[in-house]
Amino acid sequence: MTAHDHDHDHDDAHDHDHDHPHGPHPTREDDDLELTYSEARYLAMRGMLIKQGILTGDEIMRRLAVNDLASPHQGARMVARAWVDPAFKARMMADAKSAARELDIAVTEAKLTVIENTPQTHNLVVCTLCSCYPRSLLGEPPAWYVSKAYRSRAVREPRKVLGEFGLAFPGDVEVRVHDSNADLRYMIMPLRPEGTEGLSEEALAALIPRDALVGAALVDRPA
């Protein structure tokens, strides 16, 4: 085969994989970045798997499209709904995967647990052993979450780590760390800020930053 036997339309939805060894364009918006050894290894692996008939470029693209549906906004939608709808909140606390389905969010991890912050307890999530995170809901974790510094320190000095994120808690508040080390995945339900009584569910969701969903930020009242 030649180096140019695929089209360059960059259209994920219309790749023409079939019998070609490499299917759709394997890259897109980062084409101007220098190729690294890791990316070259990925491309080599992908090419061989397709050539050997183990998977197709279409399958990768379809999965990519599914993965792209996950984002912190989906978690924020669940939290905002729970803030305004106590019955939904009760269902979410009992079975977060089923509650997510009510909002057309497909959570594929084995078990999703929502943990509620209260005025007495602030919760923080970490995966010390790797990078467990509710990816099918929130997408890929932020770089800080997978850093060795966070994984090492969050369990031993959570208040110092939270301080680096600009969060300080009074002496009577409990800080509770959740090591997401096995089969469960966690999302934090942050405290609803004061002064948001009149806001719509959508407006409430828009207030919730990504990092609040694992306990590394608070939700500020609207400016």
Binding site: V155, R156, E157, P158, R159, K160, G171, D172, V173, E174, V175, R176, V177, H178, D179, S180, N181, A182, D183, L184
Partner: peptide, 26 residues
């Protein structure tokens, strides 16, 4: 599988946070 909760002070003899702080792990 269980979630087990610890007092942070029991995990780290030199824990610098507050005595009520806890950690939960699977």
């Amino acid at each position: 599988l269980y979630r087990v909760r610890f007092a942070q002070a029991d995990l780290w003899p030199d824990y610098e946070g507050r005595p009520q702080d806890q950690l939960v792990i699977e």
